[in-house]
Design a protein around this nucleic acid. Structure first.
Lengths: 152, 152
DNA sequence: TTTACTGCAAAGGGTTTGCAACATG
DNA sequence: CATGTTGCAAACCCTTTGCAGTAAA
């Protein structure tokens, strides 16, 4: 599971062209912004990083990038979209720690052993029910440090 | 972890009165509808079961019931709210199988061993980072039978 | 008889879309 | 130069809220 140093930008370009899309300056900036964030970010966060990009273009680009498989939408506690780079681009499989008060999302690494169990279980279930399982989400949900500090 | 035969309605009534709320006919019907569904359901589904209940009342009641801890909001693949009875009411701890095409949600049971590993891991993480972890979500995400049939 | 609950209709707020101008392969 | 991309503004849709009337403890 070691991360080969694949070039994120060239991979993105390939995957975009495979769906008949172009790798524009805005899209490159979005990828850079997502790549330099240590955790999934909202559309608003993204628009602050990528100055001058219209809201509609941000949404459209994220949809295209997700379609192309280079970006992944992450579900938190509120209904605001959050995005991160696809794991096969970063080579970093991880899960999330989610604050149910402020909806912040933190990345966490999961022990190999646990991952194996989840995969085994996943395969079993796939056999039992007629369902093609693509991936899993393991989220730990609670209250982050800042939010519990505010409670006092 | 065997489910004691607690009375869902009386427990709901207690928990509601604890937050200064009443257990009305509408709320009872909502609880019944959620209790008789084998999987989390959307607000629209709910309104079809509980005929005559205004949309606003449905949303308000669900919010109150969630606040009182008898109902839980479940996150799927789209941004539509889905609800189920709280696990401590049903005595049935479970996780979800999610279709990323149609957003359907199915309940699945998880082996005790896997649950234990998740708990261990959860405790470890809680120690590492300053975060109070309340619960976890383990979702298997993929494409359900109906949706993959449509692809052909 | 006080306080919560309800329905109706209107407002919110994140996201999507139509369209004309612009940029990329 | 054909087709994708952009910004603007309007539309969308799920959800929330204000209000006046109703019902529960």
């Amino acid at each position: 599971m070691t991360a080969l140093p694949i070039d994120i930008h060239s991979t993105t370009k390939d995957r975009l062209s495979r769906v008949g899309q172009r790798y524009t300056e805005s899209r490159r900036e979005i990828i850079d912004a997502l790549g330099s964030s240590p955790h999934p970010i909202t559309v608003n966060d993204l628009m602050e990083s990528v100055k001058g990009l219209a809201q509609s273009s941000t949404y459209r680009n994220l949809a295209v990038l997700e379609e192309a498989g280079v970006v992944r939408r992450v579900v938190s506690a509120d209904d605001m979209a959050r995005y991160e780079l696809a794991e096969d681009l970063t080579g970093h499989h991880h899960h999330h720690l989610i604050c149910q008060r402020c909806s912040a999302v933190l990345d966490i690494d999961v022990p190999q052993a646990l991952e194996r169990y989840v995969h085994e279980f996943s395969d079993e279930i796939a056999k039992q029910v007629n369902f093609r399982i693509d991936h899993h989400r393991l989220d730990l949900v609670g209250i982050c440090a800042q939010c519990s500090a505010q409670d006092r």
